[in-house]
Nucleic acid binder design. Structure first.
Lengths: 366, 366
DNA sequence: GGGGTCTGGTAAAACAGTTTAGTAGTCCTG
DNA sequence: CAGGACTACTAAACTGTTTTACCAGACCCC
């Protein structure tokens, strides 16, 4: 009796019902159990401090109420605000729905040993959310069109049909173009992300160039340099841009890190961001507003992206078992569930004007 | 037969032994099973692509081969390089020993709902590693002297007996003092971490002050300001320090973020770090070497700290079940296991001299 | 009052492992 | 050659759930 934790049997005995009844009450909640019985069971649960074991719960149907978050094996990946924010969002939504988050890094042996299968089969993970996937992750092909619970967060792939959740990168590119043109810039450069590996990087660039063209501003290919999404490469890219056209008045960078690298390069040649040259970033990482001057950038709500990704996953793998809390948000759910393109939703973005943009110097205006 | 995954029974049938035998081979590895039988079973496992289910495995003894990493509910906590590096280390060691990592945030309801018990009882987590614990986390008292598998990473508490893994903060303080004194500084300030909440912050400060005193340099209390470990507060602290003594030639900051904040404050009053004033940080986060000038700082190997924390945990909860890989590192294990103070090991730290320190201007020398 | 449909439950079979207690068979010993 | 110890293996109980199939009683209808 007093040995170890209470099990479902103890609860059944305590409340004088069968163990099936207890299980029914725990799961469906509103099945064909009378109120009086339910109350009796519930108070027995309370009295015995009963906590159902997840291990045992998952066994019969091979579900663990656990989601795996997969990130690439980059150095400091965990320390990156980009990943950090998304994971935060995933975590919070998962926690609110009684799911747990398991961390997984796509190291070399991850692919070699088919770790993704192991994750699902051996660990009974209910779903996998992959952040930071790139074209290099060939194993994604295995999920092509499959109905395995796999979601790519914030990238998407034309060659494979994968479930995806994204920020609206095309709009980001357009906002940047609009902003710079409005300020009067017509001699504009661009530091792109690694477009060959990351489709969203390509989309930002394309949207930026196209929108500039709509405004009658041409951005030749030679004024687009790849900054690999890093501070260091962003610095080099800026240096290169200034060599190719020393009279640039504005630059749009595919992410904030590269923009901060660009700051350095500008300063080294005596040009001050926000005074001599306008710089727009993308992502709105914490460092952006701490920079000097604060960086004008496109705000991406990565936290919300994580939330959305997690919600999409849970809707996918657990459509029925929405208990207590699920009811709380039914009202807000409606808009989502009915959404036609819900297999690949896009999150809105917005421009945040800060100190790193200025109008072009008078002499430079066309 | 061909329905779904292979189970241990399928393997037993295929290799013509009992299911017990298969289990024995899977677990102990070197029990009293003959080589010929072992080979037969192993090849059956291979042939059937058998993967034991963790859920089922854990059920009988309530272990899941999963460790929970607990972090405080700070905004952007996941995005902090400090947490990031430690988690990386934990992850890698865990992955190499066939453990999985579960993320958990100590949100308000974490404490209210005794989530830590739920973690262990309901989720069958084998151990909990808490990063970023402070004096505010009162619930730690519940683990006081208990033998629950709970480890505090990189902080420690005098009032409770908790298992702890630490960087050597006393040495950090001493190294900073030595370095500044060697350069000739005698008029020194200090931006501390929140000493009341974080014992290691207190230790750094104490060690720094004591060592300065050994060198005959006095650091009065009014030249110690709390920077709360953040960039913003570090900036304010520096501003305050410069008000209190405008002729300071050097400042040691309790972490790199505050040091970077101090950069801003110095620049605003026209003092250039590395030229007019020497600044030493602590932690060696990635931003430290990217700063301008690169920050001289105390290197803390947080990755290795994570590794050590995880190893300590696994040694604690899984002393027996060291399979295959465990043998690989037996040689290096010896030093560790025999360690007398292994309940609270300290990781060595080192000073990395970069561009943010200079000798005091000639006029300032005493 | 025989037969159908609800209502509110229950018994028992999975699920996939671990672990305990044992048991044949062989070898050695006195 | 009986008895003990060792070797290599196995049967069966056990872990804590979910789920399927069934069942007794109440109620209603003709």
């Amino acid at each position: 009796m007093s040995k170890g934790r209470a099990s479902i049997r103890d609860v059944a005995r305590e409340s004088g019902v069968s163990l099936t009844t207890v299980s029914l009450i725990l799961n469906k909640g509103d099945e064909r159990i009378s109120d009086s019985t339910r109350q009796r069971v519930l108070s027995a649960i309370e009295k015995l401090q009963y906590r159902p074991s997840r291990l045992a719960r998952g066994l019969p149907n091979n579900r663990s109420r656990t989601l795996a978050v997969l990130i690439p094996a980059l150095q400091h990946a965990f320390a990156d605000p980009y990943f950090g924010e998304i994971i935060s969002g995933i975590y919070d939504y998962a926690a609110d729905h009684d799911y747990r988050i398991m961390l997984e890094v796509a190291r070399r042996d991850f692919i070699r040993r088919k770790q993704y299968d192991i994750l699902i089969e051996e660990c009974s993970v209910d779903g996998i959310l992959f952040i930071g996937a790139t074209e290099e992750h060939r194993f994604l092909a295995e999920f092509d069109g499959s109905d395995k619970p796999f979601i790519v967060v914030n990238n998407h792939f034309q060659q494979w049909k994968l479930r995806t959740v994204l920020c609206d990168y095309a709009v980001a590119g357009r906002l940047a173009a609009d902003h710079l043109v409005e300020l009067g810039h017509r001699r504009v450069g661009h530091i792109s992300g690694p477009a060959a590996q990351v489709l969203t990087a390509e989309q930002v660039t394309a949207a930026f160039v196209d929108r500039l063209a709509e405004h009658g501003v041409e951005l030749p290919d030679r004024l687009i340099v790849d900054g690999q999404f890093t501070v260091e490469m962003g610095e080099l890219a800026m240096q290169e841009l200034l060599t190719r056209d020393s009279e640039l008045t504005a630059v749009f960078c595919g992410n904030d890190k590269m923009a901060l690298g660009a700051y350095h390069a500008c300063r080294r040649v005596g040009r001050t961001p926000g005074e001599d040259i306008a710089i727009v970033g993308c992502d709105n990482i914490p460092a952006a507003q701490m920079a000097d001057p604060p960086l004008t950038t496109i705000h991406m709500n990565f936290y919300q992206l994580g939330t959305l990704a997690c919600r999409t996953m849970i809707d996918l793998v657990d459509p029925v078992r929405c208990r207590r809390r699920a009811a709380d948000e039914q009202s807000s759910d409606d808009g989502h569930n009915g959404h036609p393109e819900s297999r690949c939703p896009r999150l809105p973005v917005s421009l945040i004007a800060r100190g790193s943009c200025c109008e072009p110097a008078v002499g430079d205006r066309v």
